[in-house]
Design a protein around this nucleic acid. Structure first.
Lengths: 186, 186
DNA sequence: AGCTAAACGTAGGCTCCCTACGCTTATGCC
DNA sequence: GGCATAAGCGTAGGGAGCCTACGTTTAGCT
């Protein structure tokens, strides 16, 4: 059965407030603040979103879905990776709360957001293996771990430059498989 | 003036308890629990260590100091980097709380632990620039950001393998400067 | 033994998280 | 239109953790 009209409105208000406050103040805003901003009580927030993560996930649903899309049509898989990473970096810059979803350390159930992203990376890596433009030495989870640094970078005027170097480093390393062979175990 | 005898004993007890609880239960143990374990009150803990970070820093002082040491005597700078990273990875595995020190996002004052590590990496990179074994495309902070993934990896039986791949990837990328030139801006 | 400053613990305020419970109101039916 | 009902809501409060003010204890010196 569909939600009641007031419930639907409250839900929407919560998502709007959440998106704004997460973007403005980071992933650790008090949930009470979000509820107050939306003009509802904290209980209503919990009724609609059982956890902070659930709220972030829905507030940034569009971005997560966008990261699930991979454009393999143009150029090599390495090109596709570069394009995908550009979007990833842009979200990391503007939607810092996404980091909590992507790199949470859940015992069993990792959040669906993470699954979507790992999935996208797997498709890119698989395409790279087919067209030979990417190494097969790292799996999607490895790549995601390498990108974790994006969320630890202090924001400021240097952020884009540093993030860009980080992303380029990852792409470059995934391109050349030769330099990785014959490494002594660490 | 030196500390009073009881203060010295309490301090030592706190550090012992902290090291054990941080290792056993992760970086987020309640400070009250550490104080209780050491047989002192929470106020005493705060008197000796003004913040959680200060406590971690002292509890893991030996490890941090060890990461400040760089052995450039044998082999190339790239070899030195590999050796240093092996130690870094080992600490990341056994002393998960160190991550909070290394990748905290302080506005102004980054903790001294981070400085020590950045310093060590800078010396290695400088040596690499001199002997030509490492690229100059990334600075020490970039490298540290790349290693952030170590702290987000879920611990489990796969941890060492994944961490090893991550570290090897970083070393490999820092070795070959050629594959990084001429990249289009992301 | 007695003095004093160093060190201590208790107790409590603050913030945030989360839930139990009783009230309000949208919605479908007559 | 009015009313019954369950869906939805807010209040109020307990719990955990952080941190501090303040009065008490005690080590160390004479």
């Amino acid at each position: 059965m569909p939600l009641r009209a007031d419930a639907r409105a409250n839900r929407a208000a919560l998502l709007t407030s959440a998106a704004r406050l997460f973007t403005d103040q980071g992933p650790d805003v008090a949930l009470d603040a979000i509820a107050r901003d939306a003009g509802v009580s904290i209980a209503t927030l919990y009724r609609h979103f059982p956890s902070r993560e659930a709220l972030i996930a829905e507030a940034y649903g569009a971005e997560i879905a966008a990261l699930g899309e991979v454009d393999l049509a143009e150029g090599t898989a390495a090109d596709a990776l570069t394009r995908w990473l550009a979007r990833f970096v842009e979200y990391a810059r503007t939607k810092r709360a996404l980091g909590d979803l992507v790199h949470a350390l859940p015992e069993g159930s990792s959040p669906p957001a993470r699954e979507v992203i790992v999935d996208a990376l797997e498709r890119i890596l698989a395409a790279g293996a087919r067209d030979g433009s990417l190494t097969t030495d790292q799996d999607a989870q490895d790549v995601l771990a390498l990108l974790a640094g994006l969320w630890t970078l202090p924001d400021g005027p240097e952020w884009p430059a540093r993030a860009g170097r980080l992303a380029r480093f990852v792409v470059a390393g995934l391109k050349s498989s030769d330099s990785l062979t014959g490494q002594p175990p660490l």
